[in-house]
Simulated assay, not measured.
Amino acid sequence: MDSLDAIERINILLREEKITRDELSRRTGISYNRWLSVIQKKTQLRHGEIQALGEIWPDYKMWLAFGEEMPEVGQISPMTKKAQEDLGTAGKAG
């Protein structure tokens, strides 16, 4: 398990996937202001927000929720995805 909290993982996801908060709001159906409050740690992250992110990025569900990866079942982080792409091993388990 990594030492990042869920909000830090969301910020990494947005940066690695090059997603703006406007696009995040549009894709999740969660308001821009709600995401802004969550990302700035002004309010607590709700289950529904993690669930919405998991629907958009199913490969990141476990990492987003728990900070853990299980590449053998396709549960990775954005950093692992980038490393796989850089090495040309995306989609290859084990």
Rank of each mutant, 00 (worst) to 15 (best):
D2C: 08
S3M: 12
S3I: 08
S3P: 10
S3C: 13
L4S: 04
L4M: 10
D5V: 08
D5L: 03
A6C: 11
I7R: 09
E8M: 07
R9S: 02
I10E: 06
I10D: 03
N11K: 15
N11A: 12
L13C: 01
L13H: 08
L13K: 02
L13I: 03
R15Q: 09
R15L: 15
E17C: 01
K18D: 07
I19Q: 08
I19E: 09
T20Y: 02
T20P: 12
T20N: 11
R21F: 08
R21W: 05
E23F: 14
E23D: 15
L24R: 06
L24T: 00
S25F: 03
R26D: 15
R27L: 13
R27S: 14
R27W: 09
T28V: 04
T28H: 04
S31M: 07
Y32M: 04
Y32D: 03
N33F: 13
L36T: 15
L36N: 15
S37F: 12
I39Q: 04
Q40S: 14
Q40W: 13
K42G: 08
T43Y: 14
T43L: 14
Q44C: 10
L45H: 03
L45K: 13
H47A: 11
E49K: 11
E49H: 12
I50L: 15
I50H: 03
I50T: 10
A52C: 03
L53V: 01
G54I: 00
E55G: 07
I56V: 08
I56P: 00
I56A: 00
W57M: 05
W57K: 05
P58E: 06
D59E: 14
D59V: 00
Y60V: 02
M62L: 12
M62I: 06
W63P: 02
L64E: 01
A65M: 06
A65F: 09
F66G: 05
F66K: 13
G67M: 04
E68G: 10
E69N: 04
M70C: 10
M70R: 11
M70A: 14
E72A: 02
G74V: 03
Q75W: 00
I76A: 01
S77F: 10
S77M: 02
S77K: 01
M79N: 03
T80F: 07
T80S: 07
E85D: 06
E85M: 05
E85Y: 03
D86W: 14
G88N: 02
A90M: 07
G91W: 11
K92P: 06
A93P: 02
G94A: 10
G94K: 00
